[in-house]
Amino acid sequence: MKGLDIGSDRVEELAATSAILLYSRQDRSAVYGTVHPVTQDKGGRATIGAGRPIDRMALFDCLRELADNAGPKAEFLPETVLAVSQDAVMWWCRPAMRRVFFDCPEIGRRSAVVPHPGLVFRAASNGFSVFALQEASRPTPDSMLHEPPYFNTWDWGKICIGSATVPKRIDIGSIAGWESGFFESAFTHPNHGNQRVSHPKGEFAFWNDMLDGKYGEQFPRDALVSMDITLAELIAGRKGDLK
Rank of each mutant, 00 (worst) to 15 (best):
P105S: 04
R25A: 12
S24E: 13
C62N: 09
V31H: 13
S8K: 09
A123K: 06
A67W: 03
D68F: 08
F128S: 12
A132L: 01
A16D: 02
T188A: 00
P117I: 00
D68I: 02
L231I: 07
A50E: 15
W207V: 01
K168V: 01
Y150P: 11
H189T: 09
N152R: 09
S185Q: 09
A223F: 07
M210E: 06
M1H: 11
D209Q: 12
F183D: 07
V84Q: 15
A132R: 07
T140N: 14
E179P: 11
S24M: 09
V84S: 13
S226D: 12
Q195G: 02
V130M: 06
L82F: 08
A176V: 04
I20G: 10
K73T: 09
T34Q: 15
W91L: 04
S174F: 05
G216V: 01
R109M: 08
M57H: 10
D142N: 11
V120P: 14
N194I: 03
R56M: 05
A186M: 06
R196W: 05
F76G: 11
P167H: 03
S163V: 00
K73A: 13
S163P: 15
P149F: 05
V11I: 14
D103L: 08
P105N: 03
G181R: 01
S85G: 15
K243V: 12
S137F: 03
I159S: 12
G237S: 06
M1E: 08
L145D: 11
E217N: 13
D5V: 03
G173R: 06
I170T: 14
S85Y: 06
E147W: 01
R99I: 00
Y150H: 04
C62A: 15
E179V: 03
N191R: 08
L77A: 11
L77H: 09
V81N: 05
K239H: 14
P117Y: 00
Y215Q: 02
M57Y: 07
M90Y: 06
A176C: 02
I48T: 09
F182L: 14
F206K: 04
I20M: 10
G43L: 03
R110F: 09
P53V: 00
L234H: 14
D222T: 06
G118Y: 07
R109I: 00
S137G: 15
V81E: 02
M97W: 02
P220S: 04
T17Q: 12
M90F: 04
E65M: 09
L242G: 08
T230D: 02
A15P: 00
G181A: 05
I48P: 01
G181W: 05
L21D: 14
I107E: 13
A16N: 01
E147F: 01
L63Q: 08
A16P: 00
C160V: 10
F101G: 02
F187K: 08
K239P: 09
R110W: 04
S137C: 10
Q134W: 05
F121I: 02
I172T: 11
L234Y: 09
F121C: 02
P149V: 02
S185E: 10
D41H: 01
R94C: 03
M1Y: 08
L82C: 07
S226G: 14
D41V: 01
A15C: 06
S226W: 02
S85K: 07
A96G: 10
L145R: 06
V11F: 15
